[in-house]
Amino acid sequence: MTNFIIKNFVKNYYNVRDPEVRKSYGTTSSIVGIIVNIILSLSKISVGAMFNSISVMADGVNNLSDAGSSVISLVGFKISGKPADKDHPFGHARIEYLTGLILGIAILLVGYELLKTSFMKVINPEKTIYSTAMLIVLAISIGGKLWLSRFYSVLGDKISSATIKASSADSRNDVIATCAVFLSAVVAMGTGLEIDGYIGILVALFILYSGVSILRDILNPLLGEMPETDLVDMLEKKILSYEGILNIHDLVVHNYGPNRYFATVHAEVNAKEDILKSHDLIDNIERDVARDCDVNLVIHLDPIITDDAEINKLRCMTGKIIRAIDDKLTMHDFRVVRGDTHTNLIFDVLVPVDYDEAADMLVKKIEKAVREENPTFYAVVTVDRNYVSTYVNNPYLK
Rank of each mutant, 00 (worst) to 15 (best):
I6Q: 01
K7S: 11
K7W: 05
D18Y: 08
V21A: 01
G26H: 02
T27Y: 11
T27A: 15
T28A: 08
T28H: 07
T28I: 15
L40N: 00
L40C: 13
S41Q: 08
S41H: 04
L42V: 14
V47S: 02
G48L: 09
M50F: 14
I54W: 05
V56Y: 03
G60F: 04
S65C: 15
A67N: 09
G68C: 05
V71Q: 01
L74F: 08
G76C: 06
K82V: 08
A93R: 09
L98S: 05
T99K: 06
G100F: 07
G104P: 01
I107C: 00
V110S: 10
G111M: 01
K116F: 13
K116N: 12
F119H: 12
K121W: 09
N124G: 11
N124P: 09
S131N: 09
M134D: 04
L135S: 04
G143T: 09
K145S: 02
S149W: 10
Y152I: 05
V154Q: 08
L155Q: 13
K158L: 10
N173S: 14
A177D: 08
V181H: 08
S184C: 10
A185W: 00
A188P: 04
E194R: 11
G197R: 00
L202V: 13
F206N: 12
I207E: 04
G211F: 06
D217E: 12
L223Q: 06
K237A: 09
I239A: 02
I239Y: 04
S241L: 10
G244V: 05
Y256E: 03
G257D: 06
G257W: 06
Y261V: 04
F262I: 14
H266V: 03
H266T: 01
I275Q: 12
L276V: 13
N284H: 13
I285R: 02
A290H: 13
D294Q: 12
P303A: 12
T306Q: 06
E310N: 10
L314K: 10
M317V: 12
R323H: 13
I325K: 05
L329E: 01
H342D: 15
H342S: 15
N344I: 12
L345I: 00
D348C: 11
L350F: 07
A359S: 14
L362M: 03
K365Q: 03
R371D: 11
Y378F: 15
Y391H: 15
V392Y: 00
N394R: 06
P395L: 07
P395H: 09
L397F: 08
